[in-house]
Amino acid sequence: MIDLFYPFQWVANNITNRLNLEGHIADSVNFIIYDVIKIFFLLIVMIFAISYIRSYITPEKTRTVIGNKKGLRYHFLASITGVFTPFCSCSSVPLFIGFIEAGVPLGVTFSFLITSPLVNEAAIAILWATFGLKLTIIYVISGILIGVISGYIIGLLKMEKYVASFVYDIKMMKIKEEKKTQKDRIKYAKKEVRNIVSKVWLYIIIGVTLGGLFHSFAPEGILEKYAGNSIIGVPIATLIGIPLYSNAIAMIPIIESLVGKGLPLGTALAFLMAVTALSLPEIIILKKVLKKELIAVFVGITGFAIMITGYLFNFIV
């Protein structure tokens, strides 16, 4: 198969040659330049593509489409829609209330809420650039399934009474979809690219640089001794990842270099998923609408599903 990214490697090789570097340093510099170009290329392409699709799939539309329907296929629908909606922790409460108000069952709402931060355009782009397309596809599918299954279980537990009671009193007006032309959608997608890239570029360069240095200078297999345990590693990685905020996607290049030195892939994946799916700021914000029992169930089930995914990767894939 032709390497889509070959031109980037060519550019990186040329720059490294001109700098007259040798040995490990040349290695690191080459790796860093190549990764930076590749990540930014994929970031721009992915954010543009997903934002463009997003201009068709708004949460306002989603909640009316799903409405008060139950069943596994609506968990899938909610989870897949979650991939395309923007998610910052500041929008989780309005989205939650909006879904409940439209009659969307609690479990289906959670399928949406869990997948939404877990599978996002920035994580997809950086995963693709560092771990490759195959693993990225597996990540996306696992992310969607984690949302479906966790949401389904939360639905079975019938925890409606653990939602803050004011949520059920809110009455929302029905609003019309904004009319958007193709030009509007493209403009919106471009704006999103600028928005997200301007927020994460520095962290990505730092992440790639650290990853690149580790990649070239750390001895082979150094992590096997400490983090190589495929059994204990997964829950530890998940527990460390939960409180961290999802902007930590810039850590993906570092994680990739750790995998290169012997960190099991499933352990790495569990960590990344815990970081993106659950975060302390999000939990604090959700406390406004969820009682602590439901928050505990949400974090517990999602965390458990992430650990299972980690084990699947460590032992089967």
């Binding site: 949460p59 306002e60 309005p94 004011f166 809110i170 029905k174």
Partner: peptide, 13 residues
Amino acid sequence: DITEILRYGIMST
């Protein structure tokens, strides 16, 4: 106020 915003039918701010 988030509940006020939601009354307008708006979820995406």
